[in-house]
Write a protein that binds this DNA or RNA. Structure first.
Lengths: 137, 137
DNA sequence: CTAATCCCAACCGAATCGGTCGGCATTATG
DNA sequence: CATAATGCCGACCGATTCGGTTGGGATTAG
């Protein structure tokens, strides 16, 4: 149970973009250099973030990446979900999940609690919070 | 970011043992059949749990497995840690971690919050709680 | 002695992770 | 128009982990 480097990098890159209030798009090599992330790897990370609509890119000479929404509207959970898949930790948590043992399974309440603890922690922080260093709650 | 089947199975097995207050050791095939877990796989799971001191085994004809401590003394977090490794999600969270960017890294506070949310959720529930179906808090 | 049971090591296919490489498409600038 | 900067995309790669299986050995109650 470990957060992937992909996800660590991705969040750092998003914070980097959020911190550059500069409206001009930030080219990938600049992010990579600033955060110490291998550029080709970062490229694939940003691709996922773009597909998830968290980031938009402009191509061509003075192109680069920008946040697709204001930093206050992007929760950390959005970034993690985009890069790590759904936050849910086990398949059996949703009621429609195919686990026929669901009724009697005591363990399920654990995973449920864990799920809500995780999404609570991640969805209550936005990128804006992180740039201010003042995390709420 | 997903809990492994190993871990799901392991917790189910532990709850199974906790529920059988019967002081006689429970043979592996009985657990496997009761929880629908492939027996050879369960064997390796129980091996880990034994190495972590959560379970003790008696060999020979009427042998089997028992909890090594009363169910009220075993937290779900102990089981997960034994099977999934340390609960910490990223390497950079401890202060001694080699991340030279640690001071300035805004993302770190996220992982810290996540870590404490997870360990809070898992360490506040014991196997005894699960057998009673009445989870505290 | 025998059968039940735990113990252990080796192996396996599939998936994921963390990257790299090479090349194509787009676009601002001169 | 030419060029250079940039994003986009697909293929590949080695290492690791996951989810199991197989086969055999050690222990012990009856």
């Amino acid at each position: 149970m470990r957060i992937s480097s992909r996800c660590e990098y991705g969040l750092r890159a998003m914070v980097f973009l959020a911190a550059s209030e500069d409206p001009r798009p930030v080219p990938l090599p600049e992010i990579a250099a600033g955060e110490g992330i291998p550029a080709p790897f970062l490229e694939r990370i940003l691709a996922r973030l773009r597909e998830s609509g968290l980031v938009k890119a402009t191509r061509g000479v003075s192109g680069g990446y920008q946040l697709a929404q204001p930093p206050g509207d992007i929760a950390v959970g959005d970034v993690v979900t985009a890069l790590e898949g759904p936050l849910s930790l086990v398949g059996c948590v949703p009621d429609d999940g195919g686990c026929e043992r669901a009724e009697s399974c005591a363990s399920r309440v654990v995973w449920r609690r864990l799920d809500s603890a995780i999404s609570g922690a991640l969805n209550s922080i936005t990128l804006e919070d992180l740039t201010r260093e003042a995390v709420p709650r």
